[in-house]
């Protein structure tokens, strides 16, 4: 893997070179939180941030997406208006890149999703390393580092960003701005090791995921689920902000006075009482407790069976975004009988 570095003060130049070919989106501050937004000036970008309100999945599977139009006499007309948009997400954290890699498995495996795939092809990713806050547990979920899923990956060495080149597109980006990049030195390598070790020690949350599927299986009838069911508002916030919640609902809209319309898919959540409601009125997960249990099982157990690892990446968004303080780390530790596992 090619590794170079770029002085921080040259980042704005780098961004302006990239902007000749791509629209750049980066974390921008929004009333004390962060959100990926298109940049008008490089100075708006915040590469030191804890987490964005919505994960980058919003770029690959938007909250609402028209799949195709249907028109009388024309039949189905593909909706490709926004699919071709070429942009770069600048400043994606390892956990979020990891989450996109998981979505790759879901939307690129047995059932290939052309919408997701097209966007994935057209959107470049420049990752950036981060310092965990009190809600991060990506290290426990083995998602604190990534080996793939980015075009470039930046690690903060103080005055410079060490730059890992992950793809040929990333290499093109570096070549496009070749005079801005420098080779790394022995001192940089030392510094990198120091940064990496510091990050490892900065985690205050810890959760053991070894044998978690078995624990979930054993605790299927735990009273914890009923307690959570009483607490949960089924508001859907956790699913919306989760970087790997990929459920969607598909419905047709129809135009007034014609037989034309659109087929639209919208983010869905297994916490909604309508999620498992079928024709005839039968609901397979009528109770809130069974719905929240299903959400945790699918993340921590079902995905292990299907894809070999939990789909939770430990980004902490569901912990921060739950109005009633349901905390996945606490739930897992309680299921394990280790309520004290917070090292903080």
């Amino acid at each position: 893997m090619k590794i170079v570095k770029i002085p921080k003060k040259k980042l704005d130049l780098f961004a302006s070179i990239l902007r000749q070919h791509w629209e750049i989106h980066a974390p921008v501050e929004q009333n004390g939180r962060y959100a990926f937004k298109p940049l008008t000036h490089w100075s708006e970008a915040r590469l030191h941030y804890n987490r964005t309100i919505l994960p980058p999945k919003k770029y690959f599977m938007p909250p609402r997406e028209t799949m195709f139009h249907y028109r009388e006499g024309k039949g189905y007309v593909p909706a490709q208006e926004e699919l071709d948009q070429r942009l770069i997400l600048f400043g994606v954290h390892p956990c979020d890149i990891y989450a996109i890699n998981i979505l790759d498995e879901v939307f690129g495996g047995k059932y290939n999703d052309p919408y997701f795939q097209t966007r994935r092809k057209n959107i470049g990713i420049i990752g950036v390393d981060c310092t965990p806050d009190e809600h991060c547990f990506c290290r426990s979920m083995r998602a604190d580092t990534v080996e793939k899923g980015f075009d470039l990956f930046f690690t903060d060495l103080g005055e410079e960003y060490m730059t890992l080149v992950g793809t040929s597109l990333g290499d093109d980006m570096v070549l496009m701005a070749a005079p801005l990049f420098e080779p790394i030195t022995a001192a940089d390598i030392q510094k990198y090791k120091q940064v990496s070790s510091e990050k490892r020690q900065a985690f205050s949350l810890d959760v053991e995921i070894h044998d978690l599927p078995e624990i979930f299986e054993l605790e299927y009838k735990s009273e914890i689920w009923d307690e959570l069911g009483d607490q949960c508002l089924s508001c859907g916030s956790c699913s919306m902000v989760c970087p790997t919640c990929y459920c969607y609902d598909v419905a047709d809209t129809v135009e007034l006075g014609s037989k034309a319309g659109d087929r639209v898919r919208t983010w869905d959540s297994c916490l909604f009482h309508t999620h498992a409601l079928v024709a005839g009125g039968e609901n397979f997960r009528e109770k809130r407790s069974s719905r929240i249990k299903n959400r945790f099982y699918h993340k921590q157990r079902g995905m292990v069976a299907e894809y070999g690892r939990p789909s939770c990446v430990g980004c902490g968004r569901c912990i921060v975004g739950c109005p009633v303080h349901i905390d996945i780390v606490q739930v897992i530790n309680r299921l394990r009988g280790e309520d004290h596992a917070n090292r903080g």
Partner: peptide, 23 residues
């Protein structure tokens, strides 16, 4: 028509608003 029967929070999160209740 199919009308949503989920909470306003869901649409609020889709718009990536800051949370008035939590924040």
């Amino acid at each position: 028509p199919l009308l949503p029967d989920y909470a306003v929070c869901t649409e609020c999160k889709m718009k990536e608003n800051n949370c008035l209740l939590i924040e």
